[in-house]
Design a protein around this nucleic acid. Structure first.
Length: 591
RNA sequence: GGCCUAGUAGUUCAACUGGAUAGAAUAUCAGAUUUCGGCUCUGACGGUUGGAGGUUCGAAUCCUCUCUAGGUCACCA
C-alpha cells in the first residue's frame, strides 16, 4: 500500500472516529513550497459530511495522523489545508528499498496490447516539420504506454495510391530523362517530390494559357491537359496496367528509401507498415456487410451512406456511386485488418492532426455500429498544426520546413555551441558527430514534446530552438554532469548505511520528486501526453541542480553521507535517462 | 452559418483535471565558485488568466453570452 493510500484510509478512520461521519474520498495535493510539509490534505470537501470549522477539523485530523501513522511526524493547518510533515526515515526507506533505478517507474509489458499509429505520409513528397511533430508524438506515446505496462505495436499507414503519386510519375516520365536516386545522388523522396513540384509548375502554366485563350478559370483547372493525363494514368493504375504499376512500384520504392533514412535519423521505427493499396478492398467487404445489417443505406444513384444524424452528426458517404473506395472505406478496412493481424490488441491510438477530428469521430462511431467490441477503445491523438511566422506551410509554394534540413540545422547549432565551449576536444570526429546529433535532436524533440499536443506550435526557423533554460540540452547537460561525478566516485558504494542520516532539505526535495516518477508515467500514459514526462523531468533536474549547487558531495562530512549523495546522483541520472527515453531522446555521458 | 479546438507575464510554456498568494524559462537588472563541469545556482522585475455575467466555501479550470485565431462541415486524402 502506498503512503497516500494509507493516509487516505486513516483520514477516513479519523472522520469516522471523531465525527461519526463517512467520507467517500480524500483529496490530496503536493504541499506548496511556501508552507512546511510534504503532502497536503484538503479539508474543504469534508465539510459536506462534517459540519464545522475547517481549521479545527484539520487540526483534529492532523493530531490523529501523527498518532496513528508512523511516517507522519508533524503537521500544520492553514485555512482548510492540512499540511503533513513526513519523517526523513520515510524518504530514506523509499530510497533504500528501490533496488533498480534503471527500471524504476516502468512496468514490464503485460498481455493487454495497444497499437499506436503515427506518420501516415503520402508518397509524393518528403517529410516536413508537420510530420516531425506527428512522428515524435506518436513514438513517444508508444514508449510511454509501453512503460506503463502494456504491450505496444507501432505502425504507420502509407498513402501510396491516388492522383498525387500519379502527378509525380507523369512529370518524371515527361521530364525526368531516366533520372534515378543513383544517377543523380538525390535522396529518393526528394527526387519524387521535385517532380511533384514540376508537375504543379506545368499545370499552373497550362491553366494560365487556357484562361488567356478565354476559357473560364474553373473549367481550365479541370481541363488542363497534364491533369487529364494524370487522371488517365490513375485509371490505368486501377486497371492494373503493367507499365504504370511498374513505374509506381519503382518510384514508391525510392520514396520509402528516403523515408527510412529520415526515420532512422530522427530515431523512430515501426513494427509494421500498412499500405492503403492493400486495405481498401477489405473496407469494401465490410461496407457490404454493413449494408446488409442495415448500418448503411443506399442512395438512388448507388452511393452508400451512414446516417449519423441521430448522434448529432451528418450523413457520411462510405462508398462512391461508381463503387470505388473513399478515405472512410479504407480506414474501416485498415482498422479491421489490424485487429486480424494482432488479435491481442484491445485498442488503437491514431496520431493524426486536428484537421481530421471530425473524420475520426465518424470513423469510431461507424466501427461501433458495425459491432466491433474494440471500437470503444479507439483514440484519436489529435495535435495542433505547426505554423511558421508567415502562416501555414504549403508544400507547393515551397514554404515547408523540410525534415532533413531541420535535423541538419539543429545538429549544426549544437556543433557550434559545443565547439565554443571546447570541453570535448579529445573526442574523435565520429564521437563528436554523434554527440552533436544527440544534442541537436534533443533540443528539437524536447521543444516539440513539452507542449500540450492540442496546442498549435509557432515555429520560428530564424530564432530556431533554445538550448538554455527549459530545454533538452539543459537536461542532457545535467545528466552529463552526474556522469562526471560517478566517474570520479570510483567504486560507487551502496547506500546501505543511509538510515543513520539526517536529510538535507535539498536532498529531501530530490527524493520527493523521484518518488513521483511512477505515477507520472501512469498519468502520461492515461492522457497520452509526453508533455507530462517532459515537465516532470525538468522539475527533477531543477531540484537536482539546486541540490548540487548547495550540498557538497565529495566533501561531505562523513563517508555515509558521501556514499548516499553519490547514490542519489546515480539514481537521478538513471531516472533522467529513462524519462528521456520515453521522449525518444538520448543522453550523453559527456558533452 | 452549424460544429470542434485554442486564447495565461513582452515572448515560449506550466498549473496535479474545482483548491492556498496563478508557477517556470527567456529577456532585463543585481548577486554566487579556496567545492564535485558556470549550458549551473540565488534573488529582483514582470499578470484584471481575451471580455462580460453566472454556479459555490473557492473558478485559469464548470455554465451562458461575446471577441480573436485556427480547423471542419467533399462521391480529396
Amino acid at each position: 500500500m502506498t503512503l497516500q493510500e494509507t493516509l487516505s484510509q486513516k483520514v477516513k478512520e479519523a472522520i469516522s472516529d471523531l465525527y461519526q461521519a463517512t467520507l467517500e474520498t480524500v483529496e490530496f495535493q503536493a504541499t506548496r513550497k511556501d508552507f512546511e510539509g510534504d503532502i497536503t490534505v484538503v479539508v474543504f470537501p469534508m465539510l459536506r459530511v462534517v459540519k464545522g470549522n475547517p481549521v479545527a477539523i484539520g487540526e483534529a485530523i492532523g493530531a490523529y495522523l501523527v498518532k496513528h501513522v508512523t511516517p507522519v511526524i508533524n503537521f500544520n493547518v492553514v485555512k482548510g489545508f492540512l499540511n503533513i510533515v513526513l519523517s526523513d526515515g520515510y524518504y530514506l526507506d523509499f530510497f533504500g528499498t528501490t533496488n533498480n533505478w534503471n527500471t524504476f517507474g516502468t512496468l514490464p509489458s503485460g498481455n493487454d496490447a495497444m497499437m499506436v499509429e503515427y506518420a501516415s505520409p503520402n508518397t509524393n513528397k518528403p517529410l516536413h516539420l508537420g510530420h516531425v511533430r506527428n512522428v515524435l508524438l506518436g513514438y513517444s506515446v508508444a514508449q510511454i504506454v509501453k512503460a506503463s505496462g502494456k504491450k505496444v505495436y507501432k505502425t504507420q499507414i502509407i498513402n501510396d495510391r491516388g492522383i498525387h503519386i500519379c502527378k509525380s510519375m507523369l512529370a518524371w516520365q515527361r521530364y525526368g530523362g531516366g533520372e534515378t536516386p543513383e544517377s543523380s545522388g538525390k535522396k529518393g523522396d526528394k527526387l519524387v517530390g521535385d517532380y511533384y513540384v514540376r508537375f504543379d509548375v506545368v499545370y499552373k502554366k497550362e491553366v494560365a494559357d487556357l484562361v488567356a485563350q478565354g476559357v473560364p478559370e474553373e473549367n481550365a483547372k479541370k481541363e488542363a491537359p497534364i491533369l487529364m493525363q494524370a487522371h488517365e494514368m490513375l485509371l490505368k493504375w486501377e486497371a492494373g496496367d503493367q507499365d504504370v504499376v511498374t513505374l509506381w512500384e519503382t518510384m514508391n520504392g525510392w520514396v520509402y528509401q528516403g523515408f527510412d533514412k529520415t526515420y532512422a535519423d530522427i530515431g523512430v521505427d515501426f513494427d509494421k507498415n500498412y499500405y492503403e493499396s492493400n486495405t481498401y478492398l477489405l473496407g469494401k467487404e465490410f461496407i457490404a456487410e454493413g449494408l446488409a445489417a442495415g448500418v448503411f443505406v443506399k442512395d438512388p444513384d448507388g452511393s452508400l451512406w451512414c446516417d449519423l444524424t441521430d448522434e448529432g452528426l451528418d450523413r457520411k458517404i462510405v462508398l462512391r456511386a461508381d463503387g470505388t473506395a473513399v478515405y472512410m472505406t479504407q480506414d474501416i478496412g485498415t482498422a479491421i485488418q489490424r485487429v486480424k493481424d494482432y488479435p491481442d490488441i484491445s485498442g488503437m491510438i491514431y496520431t493524426v492532426g486536428n484537421e481530421q477530428d471530425y473524420h475520426f469521430q465518424v470513423l469510431f462511431l461507424i466501427l461501433k455500429k458495425l459491432g466491433f467490441e474494440w471500437a470503444k477503445n479507439l483514440f484519436h491523438l489529435s495535435y495542433g498544426m505547426v505554423d511558421l511566422p508567415g502562416g501555414k506551410m504549403k508544400s507547393r509554394e515551397g514554404t515547408v520546413v523540410d525534415a532533413d534540413d531541420l535535423i541538419k540545422d539543429m545538429t549544426a547549432t549544437a556543433c557550434s555551441i559545443s565547439e565554443a565551449l571546447g570541453k570535448i576536444d579529445d573526442f574523435t570526429k565520429q564521437e563528436k558527430e554523434t554527440l552533436y546529433k544527440t544534442i541537436g535532436l534533443g533540443a528539437l524533440k524536447y521543444y516539440i514534446l513539452k507542449v500540450d499536443p492540442k496546442k498549435r506550435i509557432l515555429f520560428n526557423p530564424e530564432e530556431s530552438v533554445d538550448f538554455q533554460g527549459n530545454t533538452g540540452p539543459f537536461i542532457q547537460y545535467t545528466y552529463a554532469r552526474i556522469q562526471s561525478i560517478l566517474r570520479k566516485a570510483e567504486t560507487p558504494k551502496g547506500a546501505s548505511n543511509s538510515h543513520i542520516l539526517v536529510l538535507h532539505p535539498k536532498e529531501k526535495e530530490v527524493l520527493k520528486t523521484l518518488q513521483l516518477f511512477p505515477e507520472t508515467i501512469q498519468l502520461a500514459a492515461l492522457n497520452y501526453s509526453p508533455a507530462l514526462i517532459a515537465n516532470y523531468t525538468y522539475d527533477l533536474v531543477k531540484e537536482f541542480n539546486s541540490f548540487y549547487q548547495n550540498v557538497p558531495i565529495f566533501a561531505a562530512e562523513n563517508p555515509a553521507e558521501k556514499a548516499f549523495r553519490i547514490a542519489l546522483c546515480s539514481a537521478v541520472g538513471a531516472v533522467i535517462k529513462t524519462a528521456f527515453s520515453l521522449l525518444g531522446i538520448q543522453v550523453p555521458a559527456r558533452m
